[in-house]
Nucleic acid binder design. Structure first.
Length: 474
RNA sequence: GGCGGCGUACCCAAGAGGCCCAAGGGAGCGGUCUGCAAAACCGCGACUCACCGGUUCAAAUCCGGUCGCCGCCUCCA
C-alpha cells in the first residue's frame, strides 16, 4: 500500500485514488520566460518518479502539467528583448523540453497553455461572480477570500495570521487585502483578451483551476508543486475550484522541498540559480538525476559541487554492479545443481517497494539497490575464483537482473546500462590495449606505461582484471 | 510578528517508539588483484542521533525548553 504525505492533513496517509486503479495528477508547470534551474529539475524529477511508481503499482496515471505563458514577468522580459510575448514563451517551452528530456523526465500526457484556455477562465470567473465569490472593480476582478470559509486550510493560516504578515499587495480596488486577482485590466501595450469586464488578462491562479478541471477532473487525486506554491498559489486554487464546483479540489497535495545554494534558496530573484544547461556542462544529466533522487523529495536539498561528484561516483558504482550481474549471467551457463539461490530477488523487490510505498522514499530505495548489488559483487568475486557456489541455479539471478533493470530504469528513470554511445576510437583503443598487453608480456613496462598514459589522455581508463584488460571511457 | 521545516559519522543521507547497541553513497584506512599503479572488489567505520530536561518497561524516534540553520507569509518549483 502506497502512503503519501499530504500537505492538507500534514500527515502520511494511505493513498487511495477516487477511482480505484486510476490516478489523475496535475503538477504546476513553469512560467516560460527564463531557463530552468536545479529547483525545477528537483520538482519535475520528483513528480516524474511518483508518476512512474504509481504506474509500477499498476495504476493508470493521467499526468497534466501546464505552461504559464502569460504574466507580468513574461510581458516585461518580452518588452526588454523587443519580441512578442508569444515568441518568447515558445522559445522557452522548447528549451524546457530540451533540458527535461535529457533528464529523462517522461513527458506529461498534456501541456495546456494558459493563453489557450482563456475562454474557460472567463467562464469560471463568471460562475464565481454569479455565486458571490468574486467582484469586479474598475476592470479588475477579484476573488473574495472572505466568501470562502475554507480559506487558509492548506497553508494552515488563519485570517488574522495572514493579515499579520502585512506584505499583501496594497490596492484600493480590493475590498479585503487578502483578495486576489482573477482578471487584470489591460495596461497600454500589454497583450489582452476581451472579456465581459473589459480587455485584460487572467490572474495567475485561475489557469490551474480551469486547466486541471478540464484535463484531469473536478477532483484531482494528486496535485503537486514546490513548497513555495502552498501559499498563495495552491491556497487560491482551492478557493477558486471549490467555490466553483462545491466539491473537493484535491485529495492529496504533494509538495517537494527546496534546493538551496550556499545556504540560500536558489531562485530567480536571488540570482544564484544554476541553469540546467550550465550544469550539464559539468556533469551528465543522469548523474544529476541520481543526485536529486539521493535525497527524499520533501527534504531540503543543498547544492554543492562535491555532492554532485559523490553522486556521480555512486552512480558508476551502481552501474558497475549491474554490469557484473550481467557478466555473471553470461559467463556461467546453468551449472548442474539444486534450487538454492545465492540472492533472493523477491526479498530485494519487497525492500524496494517498502521504501517507495513510504512516501516515495527514493533515498531509501537507492539504498536497497546498493545492498543487493553488494551481494552481487561478493558472488561475482567468489565465482571468479571457484565458479558459482554448489547448488546455484541462474533463475534467481535472472529474476534479480530483470528486477534491477525494471526499478532503476523504469521507476527511478536511471538506465543501469546506458546505451553505448558510438565510439569512433574503438578500433584504435583496442589496438593500443593489445599493444600494451604485448609489452607487458614481454616485460617492456616502460612501453606499457607509456601506452597506458596515451589511452588516459584519450580519455580511457584501463582496468586490469583477471579476465584481461578493459578500457573505460571517462 | 505568524506559519512550516531542518540539525544523524570527515562529507552527504535514510531511519519517526522495541526489527536500530542507526541503511546506503562519497572520502579515508586496511586487504585482494597487479610488474608497479590505477580502477574494481572485499573489509573497517557513529557505545551514538544539536543541547538540556521529561514521558515510557523501552526514544535518534513522543512531550517541554534552549541553541543553530533554512523556507513561506511578495513573483518563484
Amino acid at each position: 500500500m502506497v502512503h503519501v504525505y499530504n500537505t492538507l492533513s500534514g500527515k502520511k496517509e494511505p493513498f487511495e485514488p477516487l477511482a480505484a486503479g486510476k490516478v489523475g495528477m496535475y503538477v504546476c508547470g513553469v512560467t516560460v520566460y527564463d531557463d530552468c534551474h536545479l529547483g525545477h529539475a528537483r520538482c519535475y524529477i520528483a513528480f516524474d518518479v511518483i508518476r512512474r511508481y504509481l504506474e509500477y503499482r499498476g495504476m493508470a496515471v493521467t499526468y497534466v502539467q501546464n505552461f504559464t505563458d502569460i504574466d507580468d514577468k513574461i510581458i516585461a522580459r518580452a518588452a526588454e528583448r523587443g519580441v512578442p510575448a508569444a515568441e518568447l514563451t515558445r522559445t522557452y517551452e522548447a528549451k524546457y523540453f530540451e533540458v527535461f528530456d535529457r533528464l529523462n523526465v517522461r513527458r506529461a500526457d498534456r501541456y495546456p497553455r494558459a493563453t489557450e484556455e482563456i475562454g474557460g477562465m472567463i467562464g469560471m470567473i463568471g460562475r464565481l461572480m454569479d455565486k458571490g465569490h468574486a467582484y469586479e472593480a474598475d476592470g479588475d476582478v477579484y476573488f473574495s477570500t472572505k466568501s470562502f470559509s475554507g480559506y487558509g486550510k492548506l497553508s494552515k493560516r488563519s485570517e488574522d495570521s495572514l493579515l499579520a504578515g502585512a506584505r499583501v499587495e496594497i490596492s484600493d480596488k480590493k475590498r479585503d487585502p487578502l483578495d486576489f486577482a482573477l482578471w487584470k485590466k489591460a495596461k497600454a501595450g500589454e497583450p489582452f483578451w476581451p472579456s465581459p469586464w473589459g480587455d485584460g488578462r487572467p490572474g495567475w491562479h485561475i489557469e490551474c483551476s480551469v486547466m486541471s478541471q478540464k484535463y484531469v477532473g473536478v477532483t484531482l487525486d494528486v496535485h503537486g508543486g514546490g513548497q513555495d506554491l502552498i501559499f498563495p498559489h495552491h491556497e487560491n486554487e482551492i478557493a477558486q475550484s471549490e467555490a466553483d464546483t462545491g466539491r473537493p479540489f484535491v485529495r492529496y497535495f504533494l509538495h517537494n522541498g527546496f534546493v538551496t545554494v550556499d545556504g540560500e534558496k536558489m531562485s530567480k530573484s536571488m540570482g544564484n540559480f544554476r541553469t540546467l544547461e550550465e550544469l550539464y556542462r559539468r556533469c551528465p544529466p543522469d548523474a544529476l538525476r541520481f543526485f536529486i533522487l539521493s535525497t527524499h523529495y520533501r527534504s531540503p536539498l543543498t547544492f554543492t559541487a562535491k555532492k554532485l561528484e559523490d553522486a556521480t561516483a555512486g552512480l558508476s558504482r551502481l552501474r558497475e554492479g549491474y554490469r557484473r550481474l550481467k557478466e555473471l549471467l553470461a559467463a556461467n551457463p546453468n551449472p548442474a545443481g539444486g534450487p538454492a539461490e545465492p540472492i533472493d530477488p523477491e526479498r530485494a523487490r519487497a525492500e524496494f517497494e517498502a521504501a517507495m510505498d513510504d512516501d516515495f522514499n527514493t533515498a531509501e530505495a537507492v539504498g536497497t539497490i546498493f545492498r543487493v548489488l553488494s551481494e552481487v559483487n561478493r558472488l561475482h568475486e567468489r565465482s571468479g575464483r571457484d565458479g558459482l557456489p554448489d547448488g546455484t541455479t541462474l533463475e534467481g539471478l535472472r529474476r534479480l537482473e530483470a528486477f534491477l533493470k525494471q526499478v532503476t530504469r523504469d521507476v527511478l528513470g536511471i538506465d543501469p546500462e546506458p546505451p553505448a554511445v558510438p565510439d569512433d576510437n574503438a578500433d584504435r583503443v583496442s589496438g593500443l590495449l593489445a599493444e600494451r598487453e604485448r609489452a607487458r608480456k614481454e616485460k617492456r613496462y616502460k612501453d606499457a606505461d607509456r601506452l597506458r598514459m596515451e589511452l588516459l589522455e584519450m580519455g580511457y581508463q584501463i582496468q586490469d582484471t583477471p579476465q584481461g584488460p578493459r578500457a573505460i571511457r571517462k
